[in-house]
Design a protein around this nucleic acid. Structure first.
Lengths: 349, 349
DNA sequence: TCATTTTGTGGAAGCGCTTCCAAAAAAGCG
DNA sequence: CGCTTTTTTGGAAGCGCTTCCACAAAATGA
């Protein structure tokens, strides 16, 4: 039915070994034969059979992506980056959505240990001890995206820097009492964002009064949820006269929750309280939320490139690549001049 | 390294054929041997090697999903449904994001024709002639989701009904001059939504004045974009005194665009114009947009189930399954008191 | 009892490929 | 020119599995 190397070999009057060598660009094939075989292969429309190839020992041209399966804009966009790069090199993407890191084990066993995946991408999840151990002495490269572990290649965003930028923006607008509405500081990103906030305050000679820092203790998505945003905002409001005039919220999702609470209390943003978020989720734009943006598409594409590099060089220290996020100024902080500008951009888009 | 049927055979002192037969539940194996082999397999933690299995002629336990790659909530959610069902039966999902239906050809050749995918899901795309021809005489089942073609199994949403519900809702609220802001009527869903709108109007004894129907002519995503929403809304506004008091918008995305135009023109929703959308994208909720919701997760899960059924019964007429969407009432039609408040956040001048 | 079915079993062939090893051809050298 | 070294080539082995065919064992029948 379909064309195999035997067909080519027969037609070219050579052995299958030679054909295989030509097709894989191995050395030691004379120029004439090489040309002839190539041309015959093209004429016959030969397509290597990936399954056979995989079985015979070569890798498999497929990479497995573990993504946490709650529908976020973040992933669609990162995946686009991944897919786009993958298509270029003719690889395929196997998607494995996980609701909890513990499910990693299953996926792992199913796909990786059964040979047929030759690369893995892991998104936004903490890798647990066991996972680290299993993966480390595996030849299958693993790239962490929006996650970090010293033993693996990884791509992250400079959370501290982003938080710094956000806070600085509020300071530049003249705010003195600036609060931090954080997620669970047990998680790395939350901690880093805390650091950035503190540093920006310090650099500006402002004090980050403890009452201005509200952090979640939730385990659910490490507190990066609307609910925590809404709750912590209530605590801020309870400060009454001591309420901050501006708050840096550790994620847009939380900012949304905070916004709801404000509304319930007849408080307006930015008049009563200015907000900056983090992530630039799709909603942020519509809500006019000033926020910190991560270059998602690029992160996805880079992940694949890092993987390719690793494939060529299995040993070698893990590479860690860090993106610097940008501040996206919209209306939630109230500078009217900037507001007009951002609307213009919107309109053009 | 890893356990093979040979290991099992040796340990059980039987031939590999017997092992294979047991593992695949073939008949004609005596009960004792069957038990023994099962138990040994378990003890050895045997896992069949999917690549070898695929090469030897069995299918491949992987299904390919073609999705249009613009980051929509719709797909995250449908894919969750797909993945969830797929995990149950231990299959894997290969994701292929396409930006244009023409790219289908490439994907097709890469995955399907090269044997190793044994099922396909196609989302929200028009299937072109060529694709139909190629796939039809293929043994690989194909299920269309949110798309339709008489030759294949498919799952759709009753667009007409949804549009009917939306329009009816506006009618029930007392509106008489109800507009339709549609996408490109060349696309099937747009046409169906048009039909639903017309029928609801007719049934209520109202006339769908031609000037109340604005349709996009855009080819970009068949006009289901913010831009067309914004533009067509301008045309409505240009009607001045004849402006409708309520509009059914063919998609939430377009409704968002329409909302922007309203805002630019100092018009308020729902006071000046009530809106109903379609799709229930994530934003709809935050915007308080009343809309028509599609049961996305279920559609995904059902897609896989249809596929399984087809696998067992290759021939047999294509099955078409239609979901009825629900109306989700929020504030954009003014039926709720809390209305506008949520929109106020946006508009905070 | 032996002949005939029926049931159970072993293992070769083959899926399409890569990779070896040995052998043939070409090139180099004195 | 013969001999050695290097380059090229053919094709067997093997990846782990399914399937088929032939044969062995057990069951059935007369």
């Amino acid at each position: 039915m379909s064309v195999t190397i035997y067909d080519i070999a027969k037609k070219a009057k050579v052995g299958i070994g030679t054909v295989s060598r030509v097709l894989n660009n191995h050395p030691n094939v004379s120029e004439p034969t090489r040309k002839r075989i190539f041309s015959i292969a093209r004429k016959l429309q030969y397509r290597p059979h990936p399954v056979a190839r995989a079985l015979a020992g070569k890798g498999s041209n497929s990479i497995l992506a573990f993504i946490p399966f709650f529908p976020t804009h973040f992933f669609s966009e990162v995946l686009q980056g991944v897919q786009s790069r993958l298509s270029d090199i003719d690889w395929e993407l196997i998607l494995y959505g996980v609701n909890h890191p513990d499910q990693l084990g299953t996926a792992f066993e199913r796909h990786v240990l059964r040979t047929h995946v030759s690369g893995m991408l892991l998104f936004s999840m903490k890798v647990n001890k066991e996972f680290v151990k299993t993966s480390r002495n595996l030849k299958t490269p693993l790239v962490l995206v929006d996650a970090f572990h010293p033993s693996f290649d990884s791509i992250t965003v400079d959370n501290k820097r982003g938080a710094y930028l956000a806070t600085q923006h509020l300071i530049a607008l003249g705010h003195k009492r600036i609060g931090l509405l954080n997620a669970n500081p047990q998680s790395v990103p939350a901690r880093e964002r805390l650091d950035g906030y503190k540093e920006a305050m310090r650099d500006a000679g402002l004090t980050a009064h403890p009452e201005l820092i509200k952090q979640s203790r939730s385990k659910v998505f490490d507190g990066f949820t609307r609910v925590t945003g809404a709750e912590l905002m209530k605590e801020f409001i309870a400060l009454k006269k001591n309420m901050p005039t501006a708050i840096f919220v550790a994620s847009d999702t939380q900012a949304l929750g905070a916004l709801e609470t404000l509304e319930e209390n007849q408080l307006r943003c930015p008049e009563d309280i200015a907000l900056v978020g983090f992530d630039d989720i799709e909603l942020a734009r519509y809500m006019g939320l000033t926020t910190v943006r991560q270059p998602m598409f690029m992160m996805g594409a880079l992940a694949v490139e890092m993987f390719e590099r690793r494939l060529k060089n299995l040993k070698g220290a893990p590479v860690h690549s860090q993106f610097t996020p940008d501040l996206v100024v919209r209306t939630s902080c109230g500078s009217s001049r900037e507001r007009a500008r951002s609307l213009d951009i919107l309109r053009r888009a």
